[in-house]
């Protein structure tokens, strides 16, 4: 399965090359850390989310996934670089931002925390619509419709409940209904199922996929679970220490990973059928991003001498492979992988 650079499906009568709904270019987010040390949580990311596409953002804890997700929604202002919505740079003035926020919605990890404990399901779901349309006579109808689209049926039974009266899975559906009521083009979901029971996870994920298939919803799903990414995503971006180090379609990245970091992540999956590769070295710290390739100190390929054999070891230690372009093609920010590809 070799995906062409253009994302258009082959059996469609040449649709317009759909531009990305949401994109980041050269995005940096730096937090002023304690003791004057700045944390470069997002350190040069290019990323595109196209209509009707689910992009998975994976990587270990602290690599900047949530920060990137928040920056994409204008919740965190980038230090440099930009976020663009349909190609237009995000405008951070409140009126413009509000208009953008009608079209892009957020779903957070812990549904208990992301629902106001004192608001009923009805209030929680209706809120987005009230913000953008005011109180309309069809409000109750719309709330009920959003709840059923999120799989809470019959909706009437949930309207007056409080979050603490619902199960975790139901709460997350309420959060999703609150996003759906605005008919968004894109949803950014930050570990949407990480706090849920395994049995409920599948249902929430299927819901996201159905929303993509039925309504052309685009989504960025943050996760550190590669299996989950494999199941629901069309494309995947692997993040390490503030950078996307490998991207491509799910098949490309997960069945033929190029970056040693992606390989290490995959090797610990039970399905991998190989020796799990535990990464050596200190856990990454965004206040001290190493020079050269940011992964080199922990890179098993460099440690085992294979990089030396390929003649790139010196570059690994001194030369930053640079950010990956957002385009569609599978790519990895790795000197060794590039040397392998070039050398055949």
């Amino acid at each position: 399965m070799t995906a062409p650079a253009a994302p258009a499906a082959p059996d469609q009568p040449a649709p317009e090359p759909a531009g990305p709904v949401l994109s980041a270019s050269g995005l940096h987010v730096t937090f002023a850390g304690r003791g004057g040390r700045a944390a470069r949580a997002v350190d040069g990311v290019d990323l595109e989310i196209r209509p009707g596409e689910i992009v998975a953002l994976v990587g270990e804890s602290g690599c900047g996934k949530s920060t990137l997700a928040r920056a994409l929604l204008g919740l965190v202002r980038p230090t440099s670089g930009q976020v663009a919505y349909h190609g237009r740079p995000l405008d951070y003035r409140s009126r413009e931002l509000k208009r953008f926020r009608e079209r892009a919605q957020l779903v957070l990890q812990d549904p208990s925390g992301s629902l106001n404990p004192r608001h009923t399901v009805y209030d929680a779901v209706a809120e987005g619509r009230r913000i953008h349309n005011g109180a309309t006579p069809d409000e109750q109808e719309r709330v009920a419709e959003a709840l059923s689209r999120a799989g809470l049926r019959p909706p009437e039974r949930f309207l007056l409940r409080y979050p603490h009266e619902l199960s975790g899975g139901q709460r997350q559906r309420v959060v999703i209904a609150g996003a759906l009521i605005l008919d968004p083009e894109v949803i950014v979901a930050d570990e949407p199922v990480a706090s849920l029971d395994a049995s409920v996870r599948g249902e929430i994920l299927r819901l996201l996929m159905r929303l993509r298939d039925d309504f052309g919803l685009a989504a960025l799903v943050v996760t550190h679970d590669l299996g989950l990414a494999w199941n629901i995503a069309d494309r995947i971006a692997v993040m390490y220490l503030g950078r996307v180090v490998e991207t491509g379609t799910v098949e490309e990245v997960l069945s033929a990973p190029r970056h040693p970091y992606t390989r290490a992540l995959l090797s610990v999956l039970p399905e991998a059928g190989q020796e799990p590769q535990v990464l050596a070295g200190e856990p990454p710290d965004p206040t001290r991003i190493p020079g050269g390739c940011r992964f080199h100190a922990r890179c098993p390929v460099l440690a085992s001498g294979r990089a030396e054999a390929a003649g790139v070891a010196e570059r690994c230690r001194t030369e930053d492979p640079g950010p990956l372009p957002a385009g569609g093609a599978a790519d990895a920010a790795c000197h060794w992988a590039r040397a392998q590809a070039a050398g055949g």
């Binding site: 919740l75 409140s94 926020r101 605005l182």
Partner: peptide, 13 residues
Amino acid sequence: ADYLTTARAKGLR
């Protein structure tokens, strides 16, 4: 709290 982030992300002033 996350519900404040959610409300902000929905466009609430």
